[in-house]
């Protein structure tokens, strides 16, 4: 059936959990584009046939007209599916920047196609330059903290000699606990490398 492949692509996207990406299915994507070209060829051949019979393409309503119409509608449908696939992925990719920060973990990065990686990088540079013009970090937590410092525990080896905003270096060994500025800790927590201790 016409348009089936394109819908499969969209369904695959929808089957992922909300806000999660599936790997970019370039095979299927190429196949849909090939299907579009096929529709285009058949559409043209039907129109040509009508012209050869000396009919007015604008007003004639014969079998060829309806055949061409079906091909046209299938093309439009395939286009909608492809566009929606790209658009919704791009939306998730933009949201990744706000949730995880400019460095993507490997398991997410390998799901992106080359163009999407480029898009992510450019979007991240654009945001960075906007924030430096404003002199304001927009990615921090929106709720004003009660205390500028928080207690955290390191969950993974982050490494030594990480420079914090007050120009001190800290050694974040695994399972060590630290009393950090909120803004410093935030990026590590969202990447899953630290957890906040309460109580």
């Amino acid at each position: 059936m016409y348009g089936r492949r394109a819908t499969q692509l969209v369904k695959e996207f929808a089957s992922a959990e909300k806000g999660q990406l599936t790997a970019f299915n370039s095979d299927q994507f190429e196949q849909v584009i090939a299907e579009c070209s096929q529709h285009h060829l058949e559409l043209q051949s039907l129109i040509r046939k009508m012209q050869e019979e000396g009919l007015d393409v604008q007003t004639t309503r014969n079998a060829d007209h309806y055949g061409a119409l079906i091909h046209h509608l299938s093309l439009v449908r395939n286009k909608r599916c492809l566009m929606a696939y790209m658009y919704n992925r791009a939306e998730i990719i933009r949201s990744l920047l706000w949730k995880i920060g400019p460095v993507l973990p490997l398991e997410i990065e390998e799901k992106l196609c080359h163009l999407e990686e480029e898009y992510f990088k450019k979007h991240s540079t654009a945001l960075k330059s906007y924030m430096s013009k404003l002199e304001l970090d927009l990615t921090v937590d929106m709720v004003p903290p009660k205390d500028p410092y928080i207690q955290v525990r390191v969950l993974d080896d982050i490494g030594e000699g990480i420079v914090l905003s007050d120009d001190k270096t800290a050694n974040f060994a695994r399972h060590s606990m630290h009393f950090l500025k909120r803004t410093d800790a935030e990026q590590f927590i969202s990447r899953g490398l630290m957890e906040e201790l309460t109580g």
Binding site: D64, A68, I70
Partner: peptide, 28 residues
């Protein structure tokens, strides 16, 4: 919306239709 994923999936639902006009050159 044009980009609405659910809307696209809903519209894939199969219906049975009776052709009033003939159509040529299509494999449906």
């Amino acid at each position: 919306s044009y980009y609405d994923i659910n809307d696209i999936i809903i519209e894939e639902e199969i219906v049975s239709a009776t052709f009033q006009k003939a159509a040529s050159g299509v494999g449906i």
